[in-house]
Amino acid sequence: MKDQEIPGDFYSFETNTPFERCIECEKYLLHEDTEYIIEKAIKNYEGYPARDVVFDYAICMDCAEKMRREVSKESWQKMMQYFQENMDVQHRIEMQQQSAEENLQSCMIKKTNVNECREYQIYAHCKGNKLNMENPPYMISGEVMEELIPLLSDKTIDEMNGFLDKHFSPDPSLMEPAPPRLILV
């Protein structure tokens, strides 16, 4: 499937428009050859149709790569092993043929429906104002995040939390009980 327009699910919560700048270096992202990642963490409220965005951001590939280098080699290997052991590769290939909206309806790993997740995170690889469908958008449930956290070193968790603390100061009530915070750039 060819690249798609970036859907509103990946717009900035603050502006309800496409992200224009890298959260780290302020690089303009909407030039057609600029690649970047969008990550958004969302909390559902059981029994209610309400959702809250806990955090969202876009980060250029250069800054994302710098962040990846901060993750310990051991932590990175454990995360990659987790995905290799738990991800249905055929399903991931099929996601390239689906719309972004379809890909966000269930967890890429657990297949849990988005409406059944207490918390979840969505990710998109973009180039300019388009989704890169060679690496299609996906959703990861809070359950998967909880399984990933113990695989990470304390140093890696500190690095990830440091990034979030630097850029976000979420309403504490959104974080109770305090879930593990994880970024997967």
Rank of each mutant, 00 (worst) to 15 (best):
M139F: 10
Y57F: 15
L104Y: 09
S72P: 04
I6Y: 00
R51C: 12
M160R: 08
T156W: 08
E74S: 10
M139V: 04
D33A: 02
I23C: 02
E116I: 04
M160W: 10
S12L: 02
Y48F: 14
L151S: 01
Q4K: 01
D165I: 06
D171G: 03
C63V: 14
K110Y: 05
R181K: 13
G128I: 08
M145L: 14
E24N: 08
L148A: 07
L30C: 06
A178S: 01
R68C: 02
K166H: 11
A41M: 10
D88Q: 08
A58P: 02
S153W: 07
K130E: 13
H167F: 12
E146F: 08
E5K: 15
V185Y: 00
M61W: 06
V144L: 09
K155D: 01
F55I: 03
A41G: 05
F83E: 03
Y11L: 07
L184I: 01
D165L: 06
G162S: 09
G8E: 13
M61S: 15
Q97R: 05
A100Q: 04
P150Y: 02
Y48R: 15
N113Q: 15
Q84G: 03
D171E: 01
E39W: 12
P177W: 12
P136L: 08
D52L: 02
A124S: 12
N103V: 08
T112R: 13
I23A: 00
I122T: 11
Q96D: 00
E39T: 11
M67D: 12
T112E: 15
N161H: 01
K155E: 10
V89Y: 14
Y48W: 14
H31Y: 13
Q77W: 04
G162M: 07
K40N: 12
E46S: 14
S173A: 11
A58K: 14
C63P: 08
N113W: 12
S153T: 15
N129A: 13
K110G: 04
N113E: 11
S141Q: 02
N16D: 11
L30M: 15
E146H: 15
L148C: 01
N135A: 12
F163L: 02
G142E: 05
I23T: 06
M160T: 00
T34K: 09
G8D: 10
R118G: 15
Q97T: 03
